[in-house]
Simulated scan of single mutants.
Amino acid sequence: MLGIDKKTVSNYIDLLYQAYVIFKLPSFNKNLRNEIKTDQKKFFYDTGVRNTIIGNLKPLEVRQDKGNLWENFLIAERLKHNAYKSSLSKGYFLRTTQQQEIDYAAEEAGIVTGFKIK
């Protein structure tokens, strides 16, 4: 859509990741081979940066992307909470073959807990 090479976009995303602007949430898969191949969702540590990049600083009550903004905020806060508590919990998202999605799945000590963010 932008007329930019995919590799260039990938390089920009990697730069944002290395600069701790965004983080990647891998998809959950019990098969480690498939886990490496599957998609990742990207989130911003700071939703203000996200809003500035997409050019939308409107108040929450008039925004069309409330769901995405809320999901980004809650997952980023969960990540921060786990870091502060030195938790060994690993975060994932889960998508079924029927395209149903669990927004956040936490795995700790072999127990998986799923969260749907609304």
Rank of each mutant, 00 (worst) to 15 (best):
M1I: 08
L2H: 12
G3Q: 10
D5F: 13
K6Y: 05
T8G: 11
Y12W: 12
D14I: 01
D14A: 09
L15M: 10
L15R: 00
L16P: 09
L16I: 05
V21C: 12
I22D: 06
I22L: 14
F23Q: 02
F23L: 02
K24S: 09
L25R: 10
L25Y: 01
P26R: 13
F28T: 05
K30M: 11
N31I: 10
N31A: 10
N31F: 03
R33T: 10
N34Y: 03
N34S: 14
I36M: 13
K37Y: 08
K37N: 07
K37H: 07
T38N: 13
Q40K: 15
Q40F: 07
K41C: 12
K41T: 08
Y45M: 02
D46T: 04
V49L: 14
N51P: 03
L57R: 14
K58T: 02
L60Q: 07
E61A: 09
N68L: 09
L69H: 03
E71V: 14
F73Q: 01
L74T: 11
A76T: 01
A76G: 00
A76N: 04
R78F: 01
L79A: 09
N82R: 15
Y84T: 05
S87H: 08
L88E: 04
K90I: 08
K90F: 01
F93E: 01
F93K: 10
F93C: 03
T97E: 01
Y104N: 09
E108Q: 12
G110N: 10
V112D: 01
T113Y: 04
G114V: 07
G114E: 04
I117Q: 01
I117C: 05
